[in-house]
Amino acid sequence: MKRATLAVVILLALFALPMVASGYILYLANLLMVFVVLSLGLNILIGETGQFGLAHAAFYGIGIYTAVLLNNATGAPVLVTLLAGASLAALIGLVLGAISLRMRDIYLALSTFAFGEAVRWVFASWTPVTGGPNGLRINPSNLFGFKLVTDRDAYLLVLVVTLAFLLLTIQITRSRLGSAFRAVRESEIAAAAMGVNVRGVKIAAFALSAFYAGAAGGLFTTFSSFIHPESLGFMTTIMVLTMIVVGGLGSVVGAVGGALILGLFSELLRQLLSFQEIIYGAILMLCMMYAPRGLMGLLERKQAGR
């Protein structure tokens, strides 16, 4: 099994990385893994279920602020803060999913976009709690009594949680729930006739996707020392959308690949907002023009051509 061997080699390399890598590389690795969890989550909603929700950055932010506030106030174990952030995000995602049931396609895109911007406004304006436009300091997280101060400290935790989410995603994709997601994407009418509870499945996709985003936010707090509402706007949603579009909507491998490639881009171009915007914009347009199924689609086509 070539694939299994490859997976084992990659896993070993990932776990061995802290022995050889510098602090900056580990920071980059942590950040990329957060992007992976974010794009896996958005892929469930947009790629698998076909629900064009554009509030991902808001759920990411809810995960971050919940984890930070809990951590700063109580010093609760990191897994608790992470789970709390993810659960609150999922709960709000559930409500958003439920109230958005009547909308589809562009109306859904517009209302979730508006929701995302409203939540960002809350982050920026609720100064007593979120620090408002000044941002908020993040105290080191607490893992079984250890303080996670550096990127190196947090790396293994981030890696294990990311891998857990990857496995969960693969399992969901292969499960009957995954089939139900795709059925709703392809034809709501036929899905209902086959016994799929279309409303329930849509709400589940919203909640699950928000859970991932919230957990990604929790992971972010384990290696970062500061959060600013500026970084939780629509641009972040667009970045994650670009990741899954580049990888290929509806493909787990694509979502991971897209997150890694574009995550590197965005970090390298961090100081150059204009370049980031030009590149994301051009990629979104070019992908839709020439590779609507992203890199995975191109790969499939190449294989089929041989």
Binding site: G50, F52, D105, I106, A109, M235, I238, L241, V245, L273, S274, F275, Q276, E277, I278, I279, Y280, G281, A282, I283, L284, M285, L286, C287, M288, M289, Y290, A291, P292, R293
Partner: peptide, 28 residues
């Protein structure tokens, strides 16, 4: 885009791309 795959969501993504592309170019 419409030729590649006619779904309206793809068209929306393309206009989102236009939006960020223009913004970046203008900043540049």
């Amino acid at each position: 885009v419409a030729l590649a795959r006619g779904a309206s969501v793809n068209l929306v993504i393309a206009t989102l791309g236009l939006s960020y592309f223009l913004k970046g170019v203008m900043r540049q």
